[in-house]
Design a protein around this nucleic acid. Structure first.
Lengths: 361, 361
DNA sequence: TACTTTACTGCAAACGTTTGCGTTAAATAA
DNA sequence: TTATTTAACGCAAACGTTTGCAGTAAAGTA
C-alpha cells in the first residue's frame, strides 16, 4: 500500500496526469504552472512517494534494466567483470540484474527466461554451454544482447572476449623458450569457447615449435579448483611426468598448487606452472604465479559499448571483438634450457621478455 | 511485441481468463476441460508465450524477487555470500537482484530506492555505513529484510553475522599465546559494525592479557588492500615496530603481504600476520595465512531462513543472530615466547590449539 | 416436474503508470 | 470585434495480467 499518483492527485486536487508530468520532469513540455508543480512536489515528498517500476515498465515497454548472466559469480574473473559492468551501467543510469548460472546450462536457460519475462532492455551473457538454442530465443524476442568471454564460433552475435588463442600462445611459448618440452594442459569445461580456443593456442604453440602433441598431457574437464587438484595429482603419477603445466583458468591453478604442496613438489624447481587469468592474488602466491592477464575492465567497457550500439541500431552488422591478452612473467616458471638446476633468483632474468601489448584488436 | 494472453485467446476462441487459468496451473480449481486445456497449451507453445512479469507483478502485488545489496561484489567474502544466497533462493523458486554499492552509502541508498520501486518481496543487505536512516525506509515500506555481516547495534532489525568479537579474540589470543605483546591492528572502515566489533575483540584480548593498548598500533581506515599496504609500510617505520599484525579483513592482509615483500620482511620470521576472513586462496599464499574463518554458507542459509520467517510473520520478534567463527592456524604466526628464532616447522605445534566450534549461537 | 448441484467459461474491474488528444480560459493578433 | 494562439490541465485508453463473481447448460435429485 505505497502511495500512488492517485493519492497525490486527490490530496492536491489535480488530475493524475498532471501529477505524473510534474513528478517525472515533463513539466515544461506540458507547461505545468509553477504553482501546481510546487504543490504536487510538496505532497509527493510528504507522502514519500516512490514510482511503481512495474506499472511504469508495463506502460512504457522499457525497464531501464540490463540483465547479466555469468557462470560463477564467485570466480574472481567474473566478479571483476560484473564490478566493471556495474560501473559502466551506473554511468548511463541503467540498473542491472545479475544471475549466477552455476556453470549449469539449465539454470542459464531459466535465467534467460526470467530476464525475458522481466522485459530487460538488454542482456550481457557469459554462456556456459556448447549449445546456443536458448540464446536464439533472446534474438527472437528482439532484445539486444552481447556475449562476453564465452561465445560461439558458429553463432553470429555481438561478442567480446580476450584473444584466447594468442593468450595461450604467449603462455606456452614462454614455457618452450624456457626449455620445456613436456607441457601439460589442464583444461576447463570442454566444448566451451574459452576452453577450445585456449586448447587451440596450446596445440598451435607446440606444433610450431616442432613438439608433438601428447594426448596424455591434455587433461581435465572443468574450471574449478578441484579439477586442477585431481589432474595435477594424476599428472605427477605419470611415468614420464611433464616439466610444466599450463592451466586454463585461475581456480584450476590454485588446485594444482594445492596438489603440489601436498606432494612436496616445489614450484618452479620441480615443476613449472603458468595459467590463464590473473586475479588480484596471484602476486601473493608462493611463488608469484606467471599468468596471462585479461583486460577485464576493457572487456566490460567494450561489452556495454556494443550493447548500446545494438540498442540504438538494432540492425547494424554484428561484430566479434577480441582484446589483447598480456603475459605477466613472475616466478613460477623455471628456465631449464641449459641446466637442470638453476637458482630461483636467476629466474628474474626472464622478466625482460615480459610482453605487454594492451589495446584492442 | 511478444505474444500475450489476448493473442492466444483470439487464436483459440476462448476468453483471456481461461487462457490465464490454463497457463498458470489453476485448471483444476476452475475446472477447465481437458479439451480447452490442450488447445490453449498447444497455441501457447507454438507462440512461444512468455508471461509478462511486470503485468503479473502489478496485478498480484508480488514479484517473487529478493533484492541483495553488498558493498563489494568482487570481495571474495561477499561473492561467496551471494553464491550461497543464490543457491538458497533457487531452492525456493525465488529470483534475486544483486546490487553492488561499491562501499558508497549514496549508491546503497539509490539501490534501496530502486529495489523498493521494483517491489521486491524481500531484501538482504550488507550495509556499508554508520547511518541507517535509509534502512528505516525499507521498514516503512513494509517489506521484509535482513541484514548480514554488517548490522547496527542501535537499530532493531533481523540480522545475522559472525561473532566478530569472539573472532578477534581468537586471533589476538593466538598471537599472545605465541609470545607477542606488540600487536598492531589494521582496521577496516571505522564506524562500521564489522570493524568496531573486531576492534573491541582486539582490545579486550589485550587488556585481559594485561597488555596496555597502544593507540599507535591501531591504524587504517578501510577494507581495501591499499589500506593494508600503506599502513604496514608505516608500521614498519615505527621506532618500536610491532612483532605481529592483525588485519580486519582479507584484502587488508593481502596489502600487508605486498608491503612486507617489498620491504624484504619475511613472514613469520620477521613479522607475524593473522587476519579476519578466510577466502579460498589463503592456503596457497606464502606462507599460508592463519585466519579467522566465517561460516559463509551458514550465514547465507540463516539469512534466507530469517527472511522467510519475516515474510510469513511480519510481526515476530526481531532477532540478531551471531554465528561462531573458527580459527585456522597455519604458518604465518611465529612462536616467539621462548626464543627469538624458532624453526618454522615448530610452529605447527600450535596446531593443536585450533578451535573449531561450528554451529549457531 | 421442479429444484439443486456441477462443470465449464466469460465479464469486467483492478493493479499504477504514461501520453495522445481534447478542452477551457486567457492572451494575442488582425 | 473576431480569429487565432498559447498556457494549463483533464479524459480516457492502454500496457498484460489475475480473479471474484456471474452465467449457462447439463446432470443429478426428489
Amino acid at each position: 500500500m505505497p502511495y500512488t499518483l492517485k493519492d497525490i492527485a486527490e490530496k492536491t486536487g489535480v488530475s493524475v496526469s498532471t501529477v505524473s508530468r510534474v513528478l517525472h520532469d515533463n513539466s515544461q513540455k506540458y507547461k505545468i504552472s509553477e504553482d501546481t508543480q510546487a504543490k504536487v512536489k510538496a505532497v509527493a515528498k510528504s507522502f514519500g512517494y516512490r514510482v511503481n517500476a512495474l506499472a511504469r515498465g508495463l506502460r512504457t515497454q522499457k525497464t531501464n534494466e540490463i540483465g547479466v548472466i555469468v557462470p560463477d559469480i564467485s570466480n574472481p574473473f567474473f566478479s571483476a567483470v560484473i564490478k566493471s559492468v556495474a560501473g559502466e551501467l551506473r554511468k548511463k543510469n541503467y540498473n542491472f540484474i545479475v544471475y549466477d548460472s552455476d556453470e549449469d546450462i539449465s539454470i542459464e536457460r531459466s535465467a534467460i527466461k526470467s530476464l525475458l519475462e522481466k522485459h530487460v532492455d538488454g542482456l550481457v551473457i557469459a554462456s556456459v554451454g556448447q549449445d546456443f538454442s536458448h540464446i536464439q530465443k533472446i534474438r527472437e524476442a528482439n532484445i539486444p544482447f552481447v556475449m562476453v568471454d564465452r561465445c560461439f564460433d558458429d553463432f553470429d552475435a555481438d561478442s567480446v572476449s580476450v584473444d584466447n588463442v594468442k593468450g595461450a600462445l604467449l603462455a606456452v611459448n614462454h614455457l618452450i623458450k624456457s626449455g620445456h618440452r613436456r607441457i601439460a594442459f589442464i583444461q576447463g569445461l570442454p566444448g566451451t569457447y574459452a576452453n577450445e580456443t585456449r586448447l587451440e593456442g596450446y596445440k598451435s604453440a607446440l606444433t610450431s615449435a616442432g613438439i608433438s602433441i601428447d594426448e596424455n598431457l591434455i587433461v581435465g574437464d572443468d574450471f574449478r579448483s578441484l579439477n586442477g587438484y585431481l589432474e595435477t595429482k594424476l599428472l605427477l603419477k605419470l611415468s614420464n611426468p611433464p616439466t610444466a603445466i599450463f592451466t586454463a583458468g585461475d581456480l584450476i591453478a590454485l588446485g594444482a598448487l594445492e596438489a603440489c604442496r601436498e606432494n612436496n613438489i616445489s614450484i618452479p624447481d620441480d615443476l613449472s606452472l603458468i595459467t590463464f587469468d590473473d586475479p588480484v592474488f596471484t602476486t601473493y602466491l608462493s611463488p608469484p604465479l606467471s599468468a596471462v592477464e585479461q583486460p577485464i575492465s576493457k572487456i566490460a567497457e567494450m561489452a556495454i559499448a556494443m550493447l548500446y550500439r545494438r540498442m540504438k541500431n538494432p540492425n547494424d552488422e554484428r561484430r566479434k571483438v577480441l582484446l589483447e591478452p598480456k603475459l605477466n612473467v613472475r616466478g613460477s616458471v623455471a628456465n631449464i634450457s641449459t641446466l637442470a638446476f638453476i637458482p630461483i633468483t636467476n629466474n628474474n632474468q626472464t622478466g625482460k621478455e615480459q610482453i605487454n601489448k594492451s589495446g584492442s584488436a
